[in-house]
Each structure stands twice: as structure tokens, then as C-alpha cells.
Simulated scan of single mutants.
Amino acid sequence: MSNVQANLLYTKEHEWVEKLSDTVVRIGITDFAQDQLGDIVFVELPKVGASVTANESIGSVESVKTVSDIFCPVSGKVTAVNSTLEGSPELVNSASFGEGWMVEVEISGPEALEGLLSAAEYGSYIGND
């Protein structure tokens, strides 16, 4: 069973969203996603200052099995990138909800989070019931 954290929001593309403030969110991939991908060997992320659009690719995760796009759950501007992943991409496997976070995005407001899944909804989606 995959770890689903109650305080986060989720997408059907297996990204999580943590609200840091009314205008800033932190984004990463879920425990379910990292488990499906296997050992992650490379992470490509956008640059700070980049404009991002909800449901569009903002980078990729390469594992020993495959390469997968990272889809941004919200529209906004990238304010921080987890540069630690450049040298330690395996953090996405070992700490997908912690040190393995990917980007922080400034959003226009709480309405940008509408349509994301609750922890219970995501848990059901991945069969964690």
C-alpha cells in the first residue's frame, strides 16, 4: 500500500501539492509514482522564474525503467527548485514527500487548487481503500 499524506492535495498524474502559504505551493511526485518508476537516476526540472501551466509538463523523471513527464498541477511562476535532486535524484525514491520535493510555484490564489484530489480521493484512485 502506498503512503498517502492527509495534509496534501493530489493529481491523477500522481503529483502531490503542499500549500505553503496562500500563494505558494510545493510540488513533488507521490510515493505511488516513485514506486511504479523504480530507481530514479535523473530529474529534469524547470528554472526559477519559469511560467508554468496547469496540466503541462514541467520536466521529467528518468528511472532505470522509463522516462516520465512531471505535470504541473497548477499555473503560476516557479519560485524555487530542489537543486539537491541534481546530485541526488534517489531522494525522490527515499523521501518523495520530504527531501524529494521538486518545485515551488507561486499561484494566483486558492482557486488555483480547485479540482485537485483530497488524500481520500487519491487513495481510492490508486486502490488504497
Rank of each mutant, 00 (worst) to 15 (best):
M102V: 01
E44K: 13
I58N: 12
Q34I: 07
L113T: 10
G98M: 02
W101H: 08
F97S: 07
S57G: 13
M1E: 07
S88Y: 00
P46L: 06
V52L: 01
V24E: 15
E114S: 14
L20Y: 02
G100I: 06
Y122F: 14
P73L: 05
S94K: 12
G100N: 10
V67Y: 04
V61N: 09
V103F: 01
T23K: 14
N55R: 14
S51C: 01
G127P: 06
V41L: 08
D129M: 01
I70L: 13
D69N: 15
S88V: 01
F71H: 11
E104F: 00
P110Q: 13
P110H: 10
K77D: 04
L8C: 01
V43R: 06
V81I: 12
S75D: 04
L116W: 01
L113K: 06
V17E: 02
A120T: 13
A54L: 00
G38H: 05
S57P: 10
T23M: 00
K12S: 09
K12E: 15
I58F: 14
E56Y: 02
P73C: 07
L85M: 11
S68K: 05
E104Y: 03
G109F: 04
S83P: 00
E44W: 02
A33F: 05
G59H: 03
K65Q: 07
A80R: 14
T79G: 10
G109T: 07
P46S: 11
S96P: 15
D69V: 04
N82W: 01
V61Q: 11
E44A: 12
G123A: 15
E13L: 03
G38E: 09
L8I: 12
S60Y: 01
V4F: 06
V67E: 04
E104N: 11
S96M: 05
G59Q: 03
L45E: 10
I27P: 06
L116N: 09
N3D: 08
G49E: 09
A112V: 08
S63L: 02
V61R: 03
W16Y: 13
K12A: 11
G87I: 02
S94I: 10
V25L: 11
L45I: 07
D39V: 08
L45C: 06
L85G: 09
W101M: 02
E86W: 00
V105T: 08
S124R: 08
L116E: 09
G127N: 04
P110Y: 00
A50M: 08
S75K: 03
D69T: 10
Y125G: 05
E104D: 14
S68G: 10
Y122L: 01
T84L: 13
I58V: 15
V25H: 07
L8F: 14
S96C: 15
W101S: 04
D35V: 06
M1Q: 13
S57R: 02
A112Q: 12
G59A: 09
H14R: 04
E121V: 00
G109W: 09
Q34P: 06
D69L: 05
I27Y: 10
E18Q: 15
V81T: 06
S94T: 15
T79S: 15
K47M: 09
S21F: 04
F97R: 02
V103W: 10
K77V: 15
V24M: 02
D39S: 12
G49W: 02
D129F: 05
D31K: 13
V81N: 05
C72V: 08
G109S: 04
V61M: 12
S96L: 03
G59N: 12
I58R: 13
V74M: 07
